[in-house]
Design a protein around this nucleic acid. Sequence first.
DNA 1: GCCCGTAGTGATACTTAGTATCACTTAAGG
DNA 2: CCTTAAGTGATACTAAGTATCACTACGGGC
Lengths: 147, 147
Amino acid sequence: MASDTVRDRILAAGQRITPQRDLVAGVLEQAGRPLSAAELYEAVGRSGRGVGRATVFRTLQSLEDAGIVQHVVLPGNQAAYLLCQVAGHHHHLVCRQCGAADDLAEDEVAPFLAALEGGHRFQVDHANFAVYGTCARCTGDRASTTS
Amino acid sequence: MASDTVRDRILAAGQRITPQRDLVAGVLEQAGRPLSAAELYEAVGRSGRGVGRATVFRTLQSLEDAGIVQHVVLPGNQAAYLLCQVAGHHHHLVCRQCGAADDLAEDEVAPFLAALEGGHRFQVDHANFAVYGTCARCTGDRASTTS
DNA sequence: GCCCGTAGTGATACTTAGTATCACTTAAGG
DNA sequence: CCTTAAGTGATACTAAGTATCACTACGGGC
């Protein structure tokens, strides 16, 4: 099940607590890494009563609207959904080894965007970053290098 | 039809010149903005002899492998394909007004990624940026502001 | 210039992610 | 409690992309 803080955030967004949302959020919380909609559907089916497929998508949508969940596009164009600590729009560092996703604060990104605006005479409106690599825990096992 | 430089780049990637590739590349070149697979399929159907749907996707795949095309995910999770001047992996500034996409050189991005690596003890491997906003030409007509 | 192997093509069928619909259920405010 | 609007599940659907397979044609070698 989802932690109380997640429930609070659902309520704060003006949405109802339902067993389905609780389950979906709970599975995401326990996973601690981005899950595809299919994985989620399956996981939710195993643990507890199960949730309709349509509801899984609706729930993800609601939670995303509420700023509790965000989705990233993994390499290979796979969408994956991910419980976020930080509310509001932000970005992620995704570890390809263990799948963990680290939140990226807006103020880490803002200076970069500002620089782009200057360099390109372009007014930035919205940005989506997906940064992949290897997290501190997984470094040491392997070393990868690409652009 | 595609310009000679595009043909050269197809050859350079060890791929054959076919009327279909020529058409697809040509349409993308003329559009000068990212097109969805569906738009492309339709446009190719109008201009000239037409190309099978499967072939449109395969062609985009080949051209992407060859570094001639890249795809971006537009807001709303719409994939769009885009002819790139710059070869190799790079990023784009996409104008939401006119759809134009500006190439973003790797060395504009590298320092930012390096900073992230330091700040998060994370070894960056691959990154995908989608930056949306308003280009210089379109600024003046409207002013937008969001994260 | 022609021949041949291999890369590429088109039609079609399929898969997978996500959306729409609609009758039914249930959370939660009074 | 009771009401009602939000949420749910089943199902059908769409849209993007992939697989298959017989057929075609590019282009290197002669």
